[in-house]
Design a protein around this nucleic acid. Structure first.
Lengths: 201, 201
DNA sequence: TATTGTTATACTCTATAACTATA
DNA sequence: TATAGTTATAGAGTATAACAATA
């Protein structure tokens, strides 16, 4: 049966609807939570991370580790503090994270010639090779999301999430590190057209 | 305005674009991360939670605590395990969370007559009164999001996030508790605000 | 034997203070 | 004096195992 649906609601068409009637059937009424961006973001993030972790389990890599490999791979020579700031990871928490990657021979800390305090980060040959394989895993993972939302839905979601960038301010960044950090917006990179099939109904 | 990013969607509209060229300017290249749903979900969730926490700081209430008040307020008499399952919180971690609310006199554990093992949860008068005030705070918070995304953008985001419900499977639920938990989808209450007031200029 | 709430515990993530070596 | 990396530590959030009371 499952015939929930209190269709008759006022026609005010508010930006944020609030009041509703409690559930009649046995189902739990989520009330406001069903329209709470934060609540649904949290749920979605947990679900997507669960799939990511399962997908990357064969490589024994966590999301944060993967993000470091991507940033370092694309921006060789960056300082630790730059990478950690780009990922909104406090430099103090970034140390053991980087250690795990360096211990596995994927990333190398190199002494910067100009400033002997800082460490320039580079992928090792092993790290570069692994990242290539990881990219294939990443594509599987993202495609599963596209299968759930539709390719258009996924694109819309990416755009909307980017639109929330910088919201709230609480970025968890370090004091001085909030220099000029560009948002991770996907630029209109064209080349390399992956085939556009697999559109769910 | 919110007019950043040229809308050029490639004609091919690949499901997943992958390869790109490295950045030329000094900006950090996020590569895959800019198209990673999980990465952007995490960022957005952190930003939105930061605003939520700041908004609810006057009430000294965390998001999880608020979610419990909403569920209990809308579904009085539910067992602890039902509420915790509805929120994807393990019943073992739910105990101290509930304690914090009961200690503040917002929620009451009542002995269930039929099953003396379980506790039926109800809001106190104080809890009911507070929840009403909290709803006003919640509206401020959500409206700030609507100001950032546009009312339509926020609605689209809610729909897309609901579409990811159940993805990944890893819900963190307890074994037996994954009975029939309906998704927190917002029912068709007020008609779609095809475009209401408060649209960001 | 299974379930409800509970305790104890551990592991991950995140946050703050303070140290070192450089600048 | 300020910065980059580091250490130590504390706090949330989340995970499993095991127990008492009840079904």
């Amino acid at each position: 049966m499952t015939d929930r649906r209190p269709t008759r609601r006022a026609a005010a068409a508010p930006v944020l609807s609030t009041a509703t009637e409690p559930e009649a059937d046995g189902a739990i009424d989520y009330g406001l939570l069903g329209e709470s961006v934060g609540f649904l973001l949290k749920r979605a993030q947990m679900a997507v991370f669960a799939d990511f972790i399962a997908t990357f389990a064969t490589a024994d890599l966590r999301p944060a580790q993967f993000s470091v490999l991507v940033i370092v791979g694309r921006n060789p020579g960056l300082k630790q503090s730059q990478v950690s700031a780009a990922l909104s990871i406090k430099r103090t928490n970034f140390v053991p994270l980087l250690d795990s990657l360096e211990d596995r021979g994927l990333v190398k800390r190199k002494m910067a010639a100009t400033d002997r305090r800082s460490h320039a980060l580079h992928l090792t040959a092993k790290g570069t090779a692994l990242l290539k394989d990881l990219t294939a895993l990443w594509e599987q993972h993202e495609r599963r999301i596209a299968d759930k939302l539709g390719a258009d839905g996924r694109s819309q979601l990416l755009a909307l999430l980017n639109g929330l960038d910088g919201f709230g301010g609480g970025d968890g960044l370090d004091e001085a590190d909030l220099a000029e950090l560009p948002p991770p917006a996907a630029k209109p990179r064209g080349r390399r057209p992956a085939k556009a099939a697999a559109e769910p109904a």
